[in-house]
Amino acid sequence: MQTKDDNLMHILCEYNNADSLIYGIGNIGRQDDGLGWAFIDWLEAHQICPKAETMKHYQLHLEDADMISYKKRILFIDATMKEGINSFHIEKVKPKMDFSFTSHAISVPSILATCQQCFDYLPEVYLLEIRGYEWELQIGLTLKAKENLDEAIAYFGSVAA
């Protein structure tokens, strides 16, 4: 488990309301890219934060800046290939234009910055990154990615219980 701030332990408890959004990013057809969706599946299967809006998409769109402007807090969950992350990592996101935009992808900090600039509003946003290893055209997480997902689930599950 890796967090930058152990005070984040409480955050999932605060998401059980209609003002919150939990947003899984990824593609279950590309192995470990499905980690973000798998986390949402776990939430839904165990009825954790049932009042929060949950969402699963392949990638972020600029319009998501509009969508988050209607929410108080948002948790994004995405797979990561960052070697510095052993299992998972959660961090509060600061708005930042990082010029990552293509018509297929944009970063969470850029979405938040766009929300701030265009809609004059800054919700509380966290990004949960879970380490993945394989991204080929295949359904199913690798064993190591599944272990990382389980670690994240154990962490948040213990908090939510």
């Binding site: 600029l62 509009d66 010029f99 990552s100 935009f101 910055a113 766009t114």
Partner: peptide, 26 residues
Amino acid sequence: PPEQRNVLGLVEANPELVKRVVQLRK
């Protein structure tokens, strides 16, 4: 500069326009 001539550069230069574009695409 490449970091300006994209939609995020547009967000910084003309957020009202991008807001309308986002709403149009939405």
